[in-house]
Design a protein around this nucleic acid. Sequence first.
DNA 1: CGCCACATACCGACCGGTTAGTCTGTCCAC
DNA 2: GTGGACAGACTAACCGGTCGGTATGTGGCG
Lengths: 197, 197
Amino acid sequence: MARTTDGNGTPVPQRLLATATRLFAEQGYDRTSVQEIVEAAGVTKGALYHYFGSKEDLLQEVYSRVLRLQQERLDAFAGADAPVEQRLRDAAADVVVTTIENLDDASIFFRSMHHLSPEKNKQVRAERRRYHERFRALIEEGQEQGVFSTATPADLVVDYHFGSVHHLSTWYRPDGPLSPQQVAEHLADLLLRALRA
Amino acid sequence: MARTTDGNGTPVPQRLLATATRLFAEQGYDRTSVQEIVEAAGVTKGALYHYFGSKEDLLQEVYSRVLRLQQERLDAFAGADAPVEQRLRDAAADVVVTTIENLDDASIFFRSMHHLSPEKNKQVRAERRRYHERFRALIEEGQEQGVFSTATPADLVVDYHFGSVHHLSTWYRPDGPLSPQQVAEHLADLLLRALRA
DNA sequence: CGCCACATACCGACCGGTTAGTCTGTCCAC
DNA sequence: GTGGACAGACTAACCGGTCGGTATGTGGCG
C-alpha cells in the first residue's frame, strides 16, 4: 500500500496543506511550528520536507491557490454578456461569497503577507495587482459609459470595496445572523449605491 | 546626570515604545526580537525590562494609545452641534486622516491583534466594540431621521467603512498622489453616497 | 558642608526552552 | 535491488526573560 494516503483517504501533500492552512489561520504563521503541523496531519517532518522545500513554501501555496481561484472567477464575471453595472455587481458579490467560504485563506492572506520573503512577496503582489486592475477596468468602463459617478477615482473605489472584503475575516462569523449571500448582496448594494451617477 | 535621556533627548521609555512601534510595523510582532528593539533604541534588555513587564506590554501600549485617541476624536465629532449627516461625514473623514497619520499604529493594530494574550485581547475587543457602537449609533440616528437609507443594517455599514480604513495600511503610501485629507474626503463621500436615502 | 542610606536607572552574562531544517536509516513496491 | 516515501534523532541558532551587579542621584542628619 502506498504511504501517500496512510490511514486517511487524502494524500499526504494535500493533507499537510489543509492542516497548515487551518493552523496558520487559527494561530498565525509564526506561532505555528512545523512540528505542530506534522503532528496534526499525522506524519513527521520527513514527510513535510519531502514534499515542500520549506515552511514558507507551504504559505506560498495558500497564496497562489487563493489568487488563482479569485482571478478565474473575476474573469468569468467581468467577461460576461451583460450591462456593466450588472457585471460589476455580480463580481463584487461573488468575491464576498468566495471570501467567506474560504475565510481561513482570507485571514492568512491579509495577515501573513509580510511573512513571505521579498521575492515571493513581489510575485504575490504582482498577481494581486493584475486582479486589482481587472476590477478597476470594470469600474472605469462604467464611468466612461456614464452609468457610474466619476467623483471618485476608480482606483480608490477598488480599494474601498476590497477593504470591506479584507475586513470580513475580522468580523464575519458563520453562526451570525447573515448568510454569505446576504452579506454579499448588501456589500454589493453599498458599492453600487456609492457609484450611482 | 539622569540616565533617562542618555545621549538622545527623549526619555528611554518613550524611545523604546517608538522604536518598538516602528519595528513591529515593519517586521511584525513575532519577527521583532527584544534584542533588536533595545539595540535600535540604544539601550539594553535591562532597561526595557525595567520599564515594561514583558514584550507583550509594549504591544498593548500601542493598542491603548490608538484606542484612546480614536475614541476621543469620535466622541468630539459625534457630539458636535450639527446635522447628523455632517457629523457622520466629519467623523468618517477624521478617522481616515488619523489612521493615515499613524499608519504604523494602524498596521500593528489590525495585523497583531491575535498576538495578545486572551485577557488583553478581550480588553481591546471590548474597547473596540464601544467605538464601533458609538459609530453605529450615529448611523442609526440618521436612519431614524430618514436622511440615511435603511436598506443596509447599520452594523454592516460600520464594518463596510472600517474595512476601508483598516485596508489603508495595505495600500496607502505617503508619497502617492493623494494627501490624507483627499483620501478622507473621497472615502467619506463614498460612505455618504452609499447611505443616501 | 560632608557623609551615609537608599532609590532609581541601567548593564550584560546567562538560562531553559523552542525553532526550522538536516541527515541517516528503514521499509515497501515494483 | 533500486528508488521513492517516509521516520525520527539531531543540530545550531535564537528567543524572551532573569538576575546580580554598578553607576549616579537624592534626601536626611550631624
